[in-house]
Amino acid sequence: MTFTATELDYLATQRLGRLATVTPGGQTQNNPVGFFLDAGSGTIVIGGHAMGKSRKFRNVQQGSTVALVVDDLASVDPWVARGIEIRGTAVALTDAEPPVPFFSREIIRITPTKIISWGLDGPRESRTV
């Protein structure tokens, strides 16, 4: 699954998203996260100061699928929302090179299996692997 040029441009302007994971018991969790696009591999990297100690990291270690939503308001008058939802598989990596030097060495890498975008220059778009 690859991002369109418009989606790549949009993601490059954003710094925060909301990552949803599921516990082994079926409870959902949704948290704001910093994210980084690895355009070369077409994946998303989630990092943090103590990522390895977080519930989202443990959920991914235990097999959770994920959804990351990145959105904002292009205008409030008129109301114009835009964004991307990235659903996919994720791996929790330890001792990985962090996306920025002050983050911990644990990261979550998301491989998209479905991308839904809206308000980015054209009609709503949805693609699945």
Rank of each mutant, 00 (worst) to 15 (best):
residue 7 E to W: 04
residue 9 D to T: 13
residue 11 L to M: 11
residue 12 A to K: 13
residue 13 T to L: 11
residue 14 Q to G: 05
residue 14 Q to V: 03
residue 19 L to Y: 01
residue 19 L to Q: 02
residue 21 T to S: 14
residue 22 V to A: 09
residue 22 V to K: 03
residue 22 V to E: 11
residue 29 Q to I: 09
residue 30 N to T: 11
residue 31 N to S: 08
residue 33 V to N: 08
residue 40 G to N: 14
residue 44 I to V: 14
residue 45 V to Q: 12
residue 45 V to W: 09
residue 46 I to Q: 00
residue 48 G to E: 10
residue 50 A to W: 05
residue 52 G to I: 05
residue 53 K to G: 15
residue 54 S to T: 15
residue 54 S to G: 10
residue 55 R to D: 15
residue 56 K to H: 10
residue 57 F to K: 07
residue 58 R to E: 15
residue 59 N to P: 00
residue 61 Q to A: 11
residue 64 S to A: 05
residue 65 T to R: 15
residue 67 A to D: 04
residue 67 A to P: 02
residue 68 L to W: 05
residue 69 V to D: 09
residue 70 V to K: 06
residue 71 D to E: 15
residue 72 D to K: 05
residue 72 D to W: 07
residue 74 A to Y: 03
residue 74 A to V: 07
residue 75 S to E: 12
residue 77 D to K: 07
residue 81 A to P: 08
residue 83 G to W: 06
residue 89 T to D: 14
residue 92 A to C: 03
residue 93 L to C: 05
residue 96 A to T: 03
residue 97 E to I: 12
residue 97 E to A: 06
residue 100 V to H: 08
residue 102 F to C: 09
residue 103 F to V: 04
residue 107 I to D: 07
residue 107 I to S: 05
residue 111 T to E: 03
residue 121 D to T: 05
residue 122 G to H: 04
residue 122 G to L: 02
residue 124 R to G: 14
residue 126 S to G: 09
residue 129 V to L: 12
residue 129 V to Q: 12
